[in-house]
Design a protein around this nucleic acid. Structure first.
Lengths: 201, 201
DNA sequence: GCCATACTATGGCGATCACCATAGAAAGAG
DNA sequence: CTCTTTCTATGGTGATCGCCATAGTATGGC
């Protein structure tokens, strides 16, 4: 028998949004149910394992969307590491501006809250990072990087992106993304021509 | 009349520790009071404004300690941007290993939880980032960087550090710090000699 | 001794937490 | 029609949340 309502999907979407804005612990099921417009009584029908199951599915959705974005940027900048990195910075910055810096990264929020709370969910978040980092590494390999160098560059980029989201959210400006691009991009991909080389030690 | 007990200081220290491990919302006053060994009834004597005041003082302590560490590393690597950055990575990684990756960064945890909860505390965390970034920028200026370049490099470094802590905590290994150093350090400070230049596009 | 201050103890406030038991409505399948 | 499955509604569980009122003890200055 097919589904009759979209209450389930709306609950997941609302959970994802609230977890990004407020965090996991600060978001009550009551609020999720109320804001999703879903009927109150049927929550444990759709999610028998409760809040943890809801978080699981929110993570899966978020990771899938993130990977899709990275794949899309990778496809549009094939073989071009510089452009790839720049486009990623631009996309992440644009998303934060669009939400007026209200949204954090779901994976980062959960990564900070879950280790002391739920080992299973924590592992799921960790897998999400590994998977999305792999997309980035794959692109770098396609640019001629050695596998080892592609992996470490990808890991560094992902870490910098997460940190940048924290800072940008606090300062309510995408300046940190520009600073990151400024600092990392020319050095990442161009072996010569340092305009300010005379300033170095 | 002078203080007679250290209940106040112990409450702040315990709050800082628990906020780093579990986050702000997930940490109840009950737990802080219990684990600090402080008497339960006198909490609102020491902190009339409640949990928010406790968080304020935890932030201040944390920021002060962080700035002290950065200043110390800066003094030990004066004029040397490469060594400065390497030592920072090393110090942050070592701290995480020492705590068996249980502790997150207090400022990052609060930065993700507080914007939707307490604007005043959020501003305080933001100020903490600005202040500690300024220490890093100052060091880079002392290495001959232009002020603009010193600032953006410092901002990028701080962002990368925060992101690295998230990743390292999830993966329970300091590998991400090594990846970051590998990727950023040689390019940050050396205008010539790229051992793998032939791999670039 | 006296009293103000520093601090502790107890208990409970209303609200919210995640969770669930029970019952029933709605609708396609046979 | 009946039966099964999908979904909703209501109401409440015990626990914990941050907060606070009240009362009491301890210890310094004078």
């Amino acid at each position: 028998m097919p589904r009759k309502t979209d209450a389930r999907a709306r609950a997941i979407a609302t959970a994802q949004r609230l977890f990004r804005i407020q965090g996991y612990t600060a978001t009550g099921l009551t609020q999720i149910i109320a804001e999703s417009g879903a009927p109150k009584g049927s929550f444990y029908f759709h999610f028998p394992r409760g809040k943890a199951q809801l978080a699981e599915e929110a993570i899966d959705h978020y990771v899938a969307a993130r990977i899709a974005v990275l794949r899309s940027i990778s496809a549009n900048t094939a073989g071009d590491a510089l452009n790839f990195v720049q486009e990623i910075f631009r996309a992440f910055a644009a998303e934060m501006v669009a939400s007026d810096f209200q949204y954090g990264c779901l994976m980062q929020n959960l990564a900070n809250e879950l280790p002391a709370l739920d080992a299973e969910l924590t592992k799921r978040v960790a897998r999400g990072f590994v998977d999305s980092t792999e997309i980035v590494a794959e692109h770098f390999r396609g640019c001629g990087f050695t596998p080892a160098r592609a992996s470490s560059t990808a890991a560094a980029l992902v870490a910098a992106l997460e940190g940048a989201r924290t800072i940008a959210r606090l300062e309510r400006t995408p300046a940190i993304f520009e600073a990151l691009a400024e600092v990392s991009v020319p050095r990442l991909c161009e072996p010569v021509s340092f305009p300010d080389a005379q300033l170095r030690i």
